[in-house]
């Protein structure tokens, strides 16, 4: 493993860990600031949406249709396994048809 690769992993690990330590030490104080808390609360969803939107835009109709199926399933099913299997299977089939 090259040193830069290990360094990148260590940087990611350190960032992730220091966030937890900071959160633990600050404790419940952030809960007193509802707006900040709301923003932090929504950040993961916002990031995931921001991540997936360009991927879908760059895709083809096969990806779009499969994405609709995934959204529909994921709305009702909590287990990642099911949308994952259906989504991947759907895109394989749709790419063959379209």
């Amino acid at each position: 493993m090259q040193p830069e690769v290990l360094l990148a992993f260590l940087a990611m690990a350190a960032v992730s860990y220091l966030i937890r330590v900071a959160g633990f030490l600050v404790g419940g104080r952030l809960h007193e600031h509802p707006r900040l808390r709301a923003a932090l609360d929504q950040l993961p969803a916002a990031i995931l949406i921001a991540l997936v939107a360009p991927k879908l835009l760059h895709g083809a109709p096969a990806e779009w249709l499969a994405a609709v199926a995934v959204i529909g399933i994921a709305w009702f099913v909590d287990l990642l396994l099911i949308p994952l299997v259906v989504g991947v299977a759907a895109v394989v089939v749709l790419r063959g048809i379209l």
Binding site: P44, A45, L48, I49, L51, V52, K55, L56, G59, E63, A66, A67, V70, I71, A74, W75, D78, L80, P83, L84, G87, V88
Partner: peptide, 10 residues
């Protein structure tokens, strides 16, 4: 894409 989409929907 499916993983991100599923996590986002959840």
């Amino acid at each position: 894409t499916v993983v991100f989409l599923t996590l986002a929907v959840g």
